[in-house]
Simulated assay, not measured.
Amino acid sequence: MSLKDQLTEEMKLAMKARDELRLSVIRLVRSAVKNREIDQKRELDDQGISEVIASLVKQRRESIRMFGEAGRADLVAKEEQELQVLLAFLPRQLDREEVGELVVKAIAASGAQGPKDMGQVMKALQSQVAGRADGKMVSEVVREKLAQV
């Protein structure tokens, strides 16, 4: 089942269950996917849909950080609930340790010598971590590992 079909099915289930939060998040995702399809003038495949969901996840994480700094616990809670719904549609997220292992392999494969080779390592990692890890966390891990080389 494609991701688009899965979103449609989940939307139907959320309607039947009267789960307003889940329904609104799924509608948001479908709308964002439709907008991206209009922009690109082509239908998105599962990878493209995952990228849209990943960008929505990134927005939620940023909102949680900003609302937390502003002391808005009510909005933080709402954003965290939306984040959990979005994460259910993405592949299992890599933790910092798993990213570290991939970074070590990428450094060895690319022959990186230090921080100046960060671009090479990031390029080698992109296909392995796309949609499975936060880009900011990946770049932090790469920077740490390259400083040790």
Rank of each mutant, 00 (worst) to 15 (best):
R36T: 09
Q47K: 14
K105V: 04
S50N: 05
S31N: 07
R18D: 08
L3N: 06
A112L: 13
E140N: 15
V138N: 05
R143D: 04
S110Y: 06
P91N: 11
E82P: 01
K41E: 15
G114F: 05
K116R: 08
I53V: 04
S31V: 01
L83D: 13
R65W: 09
A32W: 00
A106E: 10
V103W: 09
E101Y: 11
M137H: 04
T8A: 11
A17P: 10
R42H: 12
G135C: 03
L28H: 14
D5S: 10
A106R: 01
K4P: 02
D19K: 00
L94E: 13
S55K: 12
A124P: 05
Q113S: 07
D5T: 00
K58D: 02
S63P: 02
E80G: 01
P91S: 11
K34V: 01
L13R: 14
E20W: 06
A77L: 04
Q120N: 12
R65M: 13
D19Q: 07
L87Q: 04
K78S: 11
D74L: 08
K58Q: 07
K145I: 10
K105P: 05
A73T: 04
G135H: 05
S63C: 02
A77I: 10
R22E: 14
S55I: 05
Q126S: 03
S50E: 15
I53L: 04
V142I: 12
K41W: 06
V25Y: 11
M118K: 09
G71W: 12
R36V: 04
E79F: 03
A106F: 05
V141Y: 13
N35L: 13
R36F: 00
R42L: 13
G114W: 10
A77P: 02
E43V: 14
L75R: 12
V33H: 06
Q113M: 11
R22W: 00
K4E: 13
N35D: 12
M122P: 05
E80C: 01
L7G: 00
S110H: 04
